[in-house]
């Protein structure tokens, strides 16, 4: 992998994020919301509104408004919330940090559960355990997060059982055990769809790899079973899985929006929902842009990991 490839990929991401910024800005322009009204309240006089619009640059042509906005964004200034008056960038990045913690823990749990299950299903193809795992994964990919979340809530989070706290967030630095306990349910919920999806992927890749000539050749060399399974088969089966996991990050970020809402978890998804409900344009713009950029970066990371692991791929 060359430096020029890396540079080109970074440029592509920049281009993607730029297009996203235009899209998001465009959408917020047609949103039925008037920032001036929101700032001054319903009782403002027309003169006051005109004055505020001029101060905010809302009387300028759309493209000038966009350039002004993106210019500030590039300097790290996402504007201030119409609702709270706080700097939006700071708020969103703090929320993103919490969301990333949730996302990473979910990914970790997914890997730990999905890979062994997928491998078992592939090795025991056509038997009861394979069919069971297959059926469970069908159900898993077919449950929207809000259904999973409510299911998790009425079982593990049910106050009648007193197992786990059902909602809220406590920073791990403040109360490690309490914080962790509050992460269990959201992480579990987010993982379900991911696990179900990745299990199917690992299984089908593993089945393919087990049928390749090189695995058959390894068997015909009389190698030990662990060696065939781990060195020859699993390694090659996991490579394509990385790409799928990268694409799943899109679902992950989408799913997190709902899960955060249900578990009252103050991440970027919940912040976005609140912003949308309040028509808080700067917050919507910043949140959407940050999420898209995160997604694009995650995809780049997955590509780099793939390239590092698969020696056949050389990006020129």
């Amino acid at each position: 992998m060359s430096a020029s490839y890396l540079l080109r990929r970074l440029l592509t991401i920049l281009l993607t994020v730029l297009i996203v910024s235009m899209l998001v800005f465009g959408i917020t322009q047609v949103l039925p919301a008037d920032a001036a009204v929101m700032l001054l309240g319903e009782n403002a006089t027309p003169e006051q509104l005109v004055a505020v619009r001029a101060r905010l640059g809302l009387d300028l042509p759309v493209w000038q408004q966009y350039l002004g906005w993106i210019g500030h964004v590039l300097r790290g200034d996402f504007g201030t919330s119409l609702e709270t008056g706080l700097p939006v960038g700071e708020v969103m990045f703090t929320a993103l940090g919490r969301s990333l913690l949730l996302a990473l823990l979910s990914l970790l749990l997914m890997l730990v559960v999905a890979i062994p299950l997928g491998v078992v299903a592939a090795l025991r193809r056509g038997r009861a355990s394979d069919l069971g795992i297959g059926l469970a994964s069908y159900v898993g990919v077919s449950m929207p997060e809000f259904v999973t979340a409510t299911l998790v809530l009425i079982t593990l989070g049910n106050p009648a059982f007193g197992l786990l706290p059902s909602t809220g967030y406590v920073p791990l630095t403040e109360d490690f055990r309490g914080g962790l306990a509050r992460l269990v349910l959201p992480v579990l919920t987010v993982s379900v769809i991911l696990v179900a999806h990745v299990v199917r992927m690992v299984r089908s890749e593993m089945v393919d790899v087990l049928g390749t000539d090189y695995v058959r050749a390894a068997r015909m060399k009389g190698l030990s079973r662990p060696r065939i399974l781990f060195r020859h088969a699993l390694r090659n089966a996991l490579l394509p899985t990385i790409t799928v996991v990268a694409l799943d990050i899109g679902y992950l970020l989408g799913g997190i929006i709902v899960v955060e809402e249900i578990f009252a978890f103050p991440g970027i998804g919940r912040a976005l929902i609140v912003a949308i409900q309040q028509r808080d344009l700067p917050s919507i713009q910043a949140g959407a842009l940050i999420m898209a950029a995160t997604y694009a970066l995650a995809n780049l990371l997955a590509d780099l990991a793939y390239a590092a692991l698969d020696k056949r791929i050389r990006y020129a």
Binding site: V17, I19, V20, P32, G250, L253, V258, L272, A296
Partner: peptide, 23 residues
């Protein structure tokens, strides 16, 4: 390129934004 960009916005978020515009 545009398709890539739109797909970089999580599907649910994109839908939310459109519904917010449309009502």
């Amino acid at each position: 390129r545009i398709v890539d960009a739109v797909m970089a916005i999580p599907n649910l978020l994109f839908t939310l934004l459109i519904v917010t515009v449309l009502g």
